[in-house]
């Protein structure tokens, strides 16, 4: 049967979402999502971050890699930790940093996202670090910026937070070694609304993690999440058993209003990470949390501050990983056609 009407690029449909992240030479140009990137590229990010970690441990923490480059932090949604570590990372690479807090400026005056971007492009920035409350915002921006500009997704809606996922992988590797195949990782909490969880799930799968689990009540598990390569548990005790890594997610207070959960107390009773529950995991299991933590809601204080917690180490690692991603995206050899334009 001849298929008379045809689609333009059947083989490409569905893939351009992540292909736009790479330049013609296969190097990282934008970092929008972990999904679709290769094991080699993720390992490369981790290795590069490792070299920056050594610099960050020195008393003089600055390298001239991005001198003369301008990086704009566009935060359409409030953030402290992520924005600060992006800013520090950029400064340690000697780039100039422009912090634009857009939630309180342009868009509240009715300016569209595209207008805001065009104005910032006119200021001749080399990179946009974008946080936005809508899924797909970073893709939208990356698809529309001038060819020379790189876009780093610092969190878009419930979709992706790729640098957070990579700093988590970095933290896991530093504590557990680089054989992810031996690891059982449990992600606990509001997976439904979590961009961090989605990016972690992709990263863990790309790095060939032995077993990735998500643990949450049925109301906080996205439909068909198994297809992303995870095992689903609704029971905390079963899910956490023999885990090497326990990643706790933040529970937003507004989830009670949406009738997703009855109360913080009941959530803590069923899914909170307590010392007793942590004993079900491997004795040397590490406890992670992207922050900010809700003590007594998803995690007991003595666990958050306890010997197995690497929560503050994650924050430190965030700087090295963001330096790695920024230097890779801005330190590329120019693409042939971009070189001509320059």
């Amino acid at each position: 049967m001849v298929n008379k009407a045809s689609r333009p690029t059947d083989s490409l449909i569905g893939h351009d979402a992540w292909n736009i992240q790479l330049d013609k030479n296969g190097h990282l140009k934008h970092f929008l999502t972990v999904e679709g990137l290769s094991t080699k590229l993720l390992t490369n990010i981790l290795d590069t971050a490792e070299s920056f970690a050594n610099i960050n441990a020195q008393s003089v923490k600055k390298v001239p890699l991005l001198r003369g480059k301008t990086i704009a932090n566009l935060f359409f949604e409030a953030s402290t930790r992520t924005r600060n570590t992006f800013e520090l990372a950029a400064k340690r690479l000697s780039a100039d940093v422009l912090n634009v807090n857009i939630s309180t400026s342009a868009t509240s005056k009715g300016e569209t996202l595209m207008d805001t971007l065009q104005n910032l492009q006119a200021m001749q920035c080399d990179m946009f670090v974008v946080r936005h409350n809508q899924s797909g915002a970073a893709h939208y921006i990356a698809n529309r910026v001038a060819p020379g500009i790189s876009v780093i997704n610092a969190g878009d809606g419930s979709h992706a937070h790729p640098t957070q996922a990579m700093l988590d992988m970095f933290t896991i590797r530093r504590n557990k070694g680089d054989n992810f195949g031996q690891l059982r990782v449990a992600i606990v909490g509001d997976v439904l609304h979590s961009r961090v969880a989605r990016s972690q799930i992709h990263a863990l799968n790309i790095l060939n993690t032995g077993n990735v689990r998500v643990i949450a009540p049925k109301t906080l598990i996205p439909a068909g999440v198994e297809d992303m390569g995870v095992e689903v548990f609704n029971n905390m005790e079963e899910g956490i058993r023999d885990a090497d890594v326990v990643i706790m997610l933040r529970l937003q207070k507004e989830r009670m209003q949406g009738a997703l959960l009855p109360s913080e107390q009941e959530y803590f009773q069923m899914y909170g990470l307590t010392e007793n529950r942590l004993r079900l995991a491997k004795p040397d299991a590490i406890v992670m949390h992207p922050g900010p933590i809700n003590r007594g809601v998803e995690i007991e204080s003595c666990v958050a501050d306890g010997p197995q917690s690497v929560i503050l180490e994650q924050v430190t690692n965030g700087i090295s990983v963001r330096m790695a991603v920024m230097s890779m995206a801005l330190g590329r050899e120019p693409e042939s056609n971009e070189g001509e334009k320059a």
Partner: peptide, 15 residues
């Protein structure tokens, strides 16, 4: 549609 794509893209699904 509430399903694989919604979950992957972090878009709110309609069941």
């Amino acid at each position: 549609h509430e399903g694989t794509i919604a979950s992957r893209l972090g878009l709110k699904g309609i069941p």
